[in-house]
């Protein structure tokens, strides 16, 4: 059964704030082997014009993906997550994520398409700080492969 097109445009309530910590950013930067001092040294980040250490560009994915879980697990939508792969990923930044941010995500089903039995769904995450300022928009494209015959 293809996914119901009427879910396109459906939004989910904003998530409780995720507080971005300096040490979590450091852990992530070390895990990807990136020694850029803007991720770990507040003075280096300030020299670049940032108020505190900033996070690597893809750091915020974990926050967006957790929020997208509300969509993925929506029983009314009925997505079979065991068949899902991550197709595309996009980020559009107003500013970098930084330590001290309290980020809230509003997830929206941007599109649903059916191609050769696969369901392709774009989930948009609008990520805002505590003051309501836009930080980054993420687009997670999920592809649910066609169920196997028989």
């Amino acid at each position: 059964m293809p996914l119901d097109q009427s879910f396109v445009g459906r939004s989910y309530p904003p998530t409780a704030p995720y507080e971005v910590g300096r040490e979590k950013i450091r852990e992530f930067a070390e895990a990807v082997g990136d020694a850029n001092p803007a991720y770990t040294d507040p003075e280096a980040a300030k020299a670049l014009g940032h108020p505190d250490v900033i996070a690597p560009p893809t750091f915020v994915f974990a926050i967006a993906f957790r929020a997208a879980g509300k969509v993925i697990e929506d029983p009314q939508l009925g997505l079979d997550y065991s068949r899902v792969v991550h197709g595309d990923q996009k980020f559009a930044y107003s500013r970098p994520v930084r330590a001290g941010d309290r980020l809230s995500v509003t997830s929206t089903i941007e599109s649903i398409r059916s191609m050769a039995g696969n369901d392709i769904m774009d989930v948009r995450g609008e990520i805002r700080d505590e003051a309501g300022g836009h930080v980054v928009t993420t687009i997670i494209k999920l592809v649910a492969r066609a169920a196997e015959e028989g």
Binding site: N36, A38, I54, Q89, F91, A92, Y93, P96
Partner: peptide, 9 residues
């Protein structure tokens, strides 16, 4: 400056 990235996909 990693903060110079405006868009990435």
């Amino acid at each position: 400056d990693p903060g110079a990235v405006v868009d990435y996909g």
